[in-house]
Simulated assay, not measured.
Amino acid sequence: MTDPELDLTLERVIRASRAAVWRAWTDPARFARWWVPAPAVCRVDRLDVRPGGALVTAIGDAGGPFVPHMDATFLVVDDQERIVFTNAVDSAWRPAAPEPVAMTAEITLADHPDGTDYRVVVRHGDPDARDRHEKLGFLDGWGTVTAQLAAVVE
């Protein structure tokens, strides 16, 4: 269930199997190809897709230095159906105050006649955090990486 005052959502049909989309989320080499908006590049430092596992990435320009991007913990992992992670708890299981906003993201995959129904719900602790994330370009950013994910698997 989503709360429009606290949550941001994105939905897309990806013309590939759930297994292919799942591999793009769970294989570090595939994940690095789509996780940050191009032309930036992603370095995957840790991708341990299991409850309590780490999601740690860095972002950079091609050939340039990398800076921290995401330090998060997976909360729920249901094979080929759902991934939930939060950056409010870092990969060492310590409370975090991430910039620009703390969030919990839920990714769900479901069968669709044309491939996979891909749904993202990003939950925030209060309306100000949700609004800040929206103004910072949630739809552009998550929309871009979702399109890149689709390009990798389709």
Rank of each mutant, 00 (worst) to 15 (best):
A16I: 01
T116Y: 06
W142Q: 14
F31D: 00
E106S: 15
D90G: 13
G143E: 06
I83A: 06
A32K: 07
T2F: 04
I107P: 00
H69L: 07
L109S: 07
I14K: 12
L139I: 00
D111P: 10
R132I: 08
W142G: 05
E154I: 06
G63V: 01
P68D: 11
V36T: 02
M70F: 09
F31L: 14
A24E: 03
R119P: 00
D90N: 15
A97E: 14
D131N: 08
A40M: 14
V153C: 05
R130P: 15
D27Q: 14
D71Y: 06
L10C: 05
P28F: 10
E106M: 11
A38W: 01
R50W: 01
A110L: 06
C42V: 04
E11P: 03
L8D: 02
G115I: 08
T26P: 02
A97R: 07
D128I: 03
H112A: 15
D79L: 15
W25K: 10
W25I: 12
V153T: 10
A24T: 11
V44H: 07
F138S: 00
T116Q: 12
A16K: 09
D117S: 09
D78E: 08
D111E: 15
A147M: 03
G137R: 03
Y118F: 13
V145L: 00
V36D: 00
T57Q: 07
D27P: 00
T108A: 09
G143V: 06
A62T: 15
P4F: 01
G115C: 07
R82F: 12
P100D: 08
V44R: 05
Y118N: 07
L55G: 05
D48S: 07
A19G: 10
W25E: 07
F85P: 01
Y118A: 14
G141N: 03
R119S: 04
C42Q: 13
G60L: 07
E5K: 14
A38M: 02
I107H: 11
K135R: 07
R46C: 08
L75S: 14
A29E: 13
G137F: 09
